[in-house]
């Protein structure tokens, strides 16, 4: 290849610019070219048939070695149960028929996740399949993602979690103190073609998992036939966990 200095500079400038633009587009990007976006539909009423049931929480905590820290201030949670008042903060469900029903909360795997935008090391990032993943090897524990997440879906290991794991699952690592963790839609199971553990464990089949980019998927059929809400849609994060009313 024979390049003049000028041509070389031109080419390198343009390629740098191109790379920068692609990066920027990815940073601000949403689902513009995504073919897969895993999502979850939560059927609030089905779930409420068993108000005492914690099957999804238990199986998730067991599968991912989520510690049960007794001190609520240091609690770690991937999927948890909360009131509609907390889950849909800013909405008014006081007089609605779901006012008293429990709501399962987890990471929304947003289209445009603020946690990914702010993470200084890309320890959390949006995968090709739309999952907001975590790299616990890289997390520096700055907790910027926790300040950025408007759903409180992220937990920090304020102390060593191991003493609070009763029976550990050797197939999955624990975390070390000083890193942030959250629901990952069971990336380890998805790579084996399996559904998330919570979906499998739910006795009422109240959790529906699937590709929301695929118009023929079960989750899409469910969403087109039922009224649903997402959490704080006004923030522009584009949650991919939908609540069927």
């Amino acid at each position: 290849m024979n390049l003049s200095r000028k041509a070389f500079l031109r080419v390198s400038c343009f390629s740098l610019l191109g790379a920068a633009m692609r990066k920027t587009a990815a940073a601000f990007g949403s689902t513009f070219s995504r073919k897969v976006q895993w999502g979850m539909a939560v059927d609030i009423r089905k779930c409420a048939r068993r108000p005492e049931c914690t099957a999804c929480i238990d199986v998730c905590d067991q599968a991912h070695n989520v510690p049960r820290v007794p001190d609520k201030r240091h609690e770690v949670r991937w999927i948890w149960k909360d009131t509609p008042e907390h889950a849909f903060e800013g909405e008014d469900f006081r007089y609605s028929s779901i006012a008293k029903l429990p709501v399962m909360l987890m990471c929304n795997h947003c289209d445009d996740p603020p946690c990914v935008r702010v993470c200084p090391t890309q320890a959390t990032w949006k995968r090709e399949d739309g999952i907001v993943a975590m790299d616990w090897h890289r997390c520096i524990g700055c907790r910027y993602c926790m300040a950025a997440c408007p759903y409180e879906s992220r937990s920090f290991n304020w102390v060593d979690p191991r003493p609070y794991i009763k029976t550990a699952n050797p197939e999955f690592p624990t975390r070390t103190k000083g890193v942030v963790e959250k629901c990952t839609f069971c990336v380890e199971r998805i790579s084996q073609g399996r559904e998330p553990a919570c979906v499998e464990a739910c006795p009422e089949k109240a959790l529906i998992f699937g590709n929301v980019m695929d118009a023929n998927s079960e989750i899409r059929r469910m969403l087109s036939s039922r009224d649903h809400v997402t959490r704080k849609p006004e923030l522009g994060t584009g949650p991919n966990v939908f609540y069927l009313l």
């Binding site: 920027t24 940073a27 200084p120 997390c139 524990g141 700055c142």
Partner: peptide, 22 residues
């Protein structure tokens, strides 16, 4: 304030232009 201060250099190893912390 860092949970994993030993990993502080990750901020430079993986420079992230869309992070204000960078």
């Amino acid at each position: 304030d860092m949970g994993q201060p030993a990993r502080v250099l990750n901020v430079l190893l993986y420079p992230t232009l869309h992070s204000m912390m960078f």
